[in-house]
Amino acid sequence: MRIKLLGWTELVALLLLSSGFVVPVFTRSVLAYSVLNQAFVGVIAAESVWIMLRMNLLSFATPAFMAIGGYTVAIAGQHNITDAFLMTAAAFLVPALVAVPLGALVLRLRGTYFVLVTFVLSQIMQLLIFETPGLTGGSNGISGVAAVTLFGAELGTNRLVLEYACGLAMVATLITGVLTRYFHQHFAGIEENEILAESLGLAVWRYKALGFVVAAGVAGLAGYSLVNMLLTAHPSSFDSSTAVDFIAYTIVGGRVSILGPVLGTGALVFATNLFGTHGQYAQGLYGVLILVVVLAARGGIAGSMAALWRRVS
């Protein structure tokens, strides 16, 4: 059987994301830039959640790994290391390496432990940041992070920052897409019937650990993108409560394909900005939408659109 590296859903996702290069051609609106930037960070973070959700595991650890990726870049910037390729690799690899021992440990246990431990993990990361002011700047964070450089040229303008965030989101989508396509059978087997998959010879915990490590790396890219957008690494950017936002993006978007996290993030980031200055109420909307999706529209936005399409055609 031929194993595809990318399918049409990944291509549509990449096409949607490439809007980051198109929109600046038409508008210089600060609001549009800001919403898109948020969406690109959100998409990467949601893809990190989605990887684990492919195996029926809900991860609350995204902000923790975002923090590792984000602070890695900020600290490197303090040492005048700003090269785009180097930083992208570091923002992916450092959190991924941290995830290796954690994943090996937690994923041998039952799924429920995974959820609980990831939740506690993102709380602990906050404490760690506050407890290590020498490294992370503690509650002040690291401000004035140097702009990223590509082949020596500084990507300093709003438009270049946006385009860079867009590029990072596409890289994350490629990584996520290739992983979930290549191991599609493994992940789907675990999702649907873990016991059967295991008895057929699949080392289930190893694939969960693999997914966890890549998800951590992808989250690290989200942290990088966030720090690059704000030019600051601050503990509040990686608050554990944001884990719920990324979970909401993914579930509301739908878990069947990578279009889920992309569409879900787009829709919810847009909706949140409609609240204007009352952004703190957005989580209530997320809560209601999660209830609706779980009770009435299991496929989320992407799944419902696919179902509608099948009915029409």
Binding site: N56, G111, V115, V244, Q280, Q283, I290, V294, L295
Partner: peptide
Amino acid sequence: LVDDHLATLMLTLGLYLVISTGLLT
């Protein structure tokens, strides 16, 4: 959905968000 672990987890998470936002409002 009581036998679907992931679904019940998400339902209680949704309820939590509704309760906390409700109290905030």
